[in-house]
Amino acid sequence: MSGSEQLTALLQNNSVAIVSMALWIFGILWMMPGRKVTPSRGVIPGLVLTLTGVAGLLLSFNAVYADVSEEVMFWAFSIIALVCATLMITARNPVYAALFFALATLSTCGLFMLQNAPFLAAATVIVYAGAVIVTFLFVIMLAQQSGAAGYDQTAGRAAPTVLASFVLLGTVSVLVSMAPPEISTVPPVDDSLRLAGAATAGEDAAGTAPGGGASMRIAPVDELLAQEAAAAAAAEANKPEPVVNLLSRATVSHPVGSMKGLGRSLFGDYLFAVELAGTILLIACIGAIAIAPRREEGAL
């Protein structure tokens, strides 16, 4: 196929996604402040365009979760996250922007829940909504007591930037929707490794649990045994011993995202990383103190 034919095919196969992204672009551009301070054009048309665009983009994947409630939650969280993100970057009032950011963060946390990450969802809400946003709001209030500032009413180079960003987004979405990438899953744990792991974990005798699909449920034992047999056969096919972060593997008792599993991972495989992150936090704290203006002697 020649280049132009390829391009035509690409456009035809992804017409829905492309059209919806175009709508979204127009929505953003509608709401985005201009180069000069101009009155707002009203958010409703932009909001409609954005909603349509986001929905179209998600619809173009043509897939649903097995569970209806999950599907509904996905739609709700995705649309809220993306629309709030759009509103956040186009808001002319930084306070609103921060609040939209909080909303987008909350929705993202909802998506985390959907992806088996309840702990992360909670942690993000606590860190962002509880700490970051509030602090930022304080700063905004402190800085902008006198109301609207000119620099919040203008934005530079909106059109090219939006186009470039959507080229990237379009590339990603077209690439993955046309030919979903094949990911290399970590091979099942073979006997020796599992024994080592079992000795470590004691109660993890049941081996690995498949975390595929929307499964947070534990698979029936006989099915697991069958799977193990298949895995052993695969392992015998002269493959080198796989390198894995053993403690990060999901097990039956510690499925992906559970507090225990995540804890084993963090304080097992990533023990040093945790220490390192702690050091970075220390540096950042002391750094923030050092950056903050020194107060006068005796003053609070």
């Binding site: 998600l58 897939a63 959907l114 094949e182």
Partner: peptide
């Protein structure tokens, strides 16, 4: 393995954010 399409959507949401 191929990534199931419903999870692809989440990835695209991430990329969109």
């Amino acid at each position: 393995v191929r990534i199931p399409a419903e999870d692809l959507r989440t990835l695209v949401v991430g990329a969109a954010l």
